[in-house]
Simulated assay, not measured.
Amino acid sequence: MQAYVFLDLDDTLFQSRAKCPVEDDLYPAAFLRDGSAHSFMTAKQRALWRLLETNMTVIPTTARDWEAYRRVELPFRSWRILDYGGVIIDAAGKPDKDWSERMLPATRDALEGLQHALETARIFAAEQGLDVRVRLIEDFDLTFYLVAKFRNGREDHLDQLQREAVEPWVEAQAGAYRLHRNGNNLAVLPKALGKENAVRHLIGRLRREHGEILTFGLGDSEIDGAFLAECDYLVTPRTSQLFERTFGRFIPQR
């Protein structure tokens, strides 16, 4: 039976140096546009990577767009899921046509709302003097979601943007959009967008092509729980947001 693992990347397989434990054995895994190393794997993460790539087909399942994904220097050889599930790339590096056709009307319907959310967030940030960057993520000529990040260590600025501007906007949309926050990543996603939808679609395709398969899901954020739930087995780092909000309650208080 063929085994597949749907693997979130950032904060699951690697993370920024600031998030790494104090150790010398760090391996650069992802880079900035200027070529400088930005994200690193610990010794345990490298061991995990070797275990996964040796024993199963690894399918990265990430919020990264195509350009950011290509700055990850790991040898993925099969399917790839990008843009919170908005894009599926085949082994030849081409967008899956069926999935792209399905996402086209969904992104078109959500575009006006995302543009309004962008304007709302930018105006609020300018008025309040917040040191944040807010933008829409576009890939393959489609607009998928909004993301905001704080700069210069001002996490409190992103907290304020979320609390006073973004959350009220999302709540006013009657369920058409959802909010995701994990560290320096505040995202507004249309309801139709989700890693879980792409994982479900791809699992169905793989089963039609290969018969019964064994699937694993690895992710760190609470939002990853939905795509993990599509898999036969679920794994999350012990230090993750997802662990804290699920298994964390089983840790005895000391």
Rank of each mutant, 00 (worst) to 15 (best):
T143D: 06
A125D: 02
G113W: 04
T143V: 14
P237D: 07
Q160A: 09
R208W: 05
L118P: 02
G175P: 03
C20L: 13
G219V: 00
A91E: 15
G113L: 06
L206R: 05
G211E: 03
R133P: 01
Q253W: 12
K191E: 11
F150Y: 15
D11K: 10
P190T: 08
R208D: 11
Q2R: 15
L202P: 06
T120V: 14
T107W: 00
F140V: 04
K97N: 09
D220R: 01
L158D: 04
I223H: 12
I123T: 15
Q241Y: 02
T42K: 07
D109E: 15
G85A: 09
Q45F: 06
H116P: 00
L51M: 08
R133I: 10
V147H: 06
L234T: 09
L74V: 08
D98R: 11
N55S: 11
S221W: 07
P21T: 12
D65A: 01
T215E: 05
A29L: 05
L136R: 04
V87H: 02
A117H: 01
M41R: 10
W169G: 02
L158H: 02
V22E: 14
Y69S: 01
Q162F: 08
R135C: 10
I213E: 04
L13P: 06
T246M: 10
T57K: 13
L51S: 11
V235L: 14
D139T: 11
C231Y: 00
H180Q: 15
G35N: 11
R254T: 09
Y84E: 13
E212R: 14
R108F: 03
Q253E: 14
F247W: 15
M56P: 00
P105G: 07
R249Q: 10
H210W: 12
I251F: 11
R77M: 09
N55I: 02
K19Q: 11
G93L: 06
Q15R: 13
E209D: 12
D10R: 07
K195Y: 03
E23K: 03
G113I: 02
W99A: 00
I251T: 12
V5G: 10
G204L: 05
R207G: 00
A91P: 04
E112V: 10
E23C: 12
D139V: 03
V188H: 01
Q2L: 13
G211D: 07
E119K: 13
H157S: 10
I88R: 09
I251M: 11
L206G: 02
G204E: 04
Y177M: 08
V199M: 06
V72Q: 05
L104C: 05
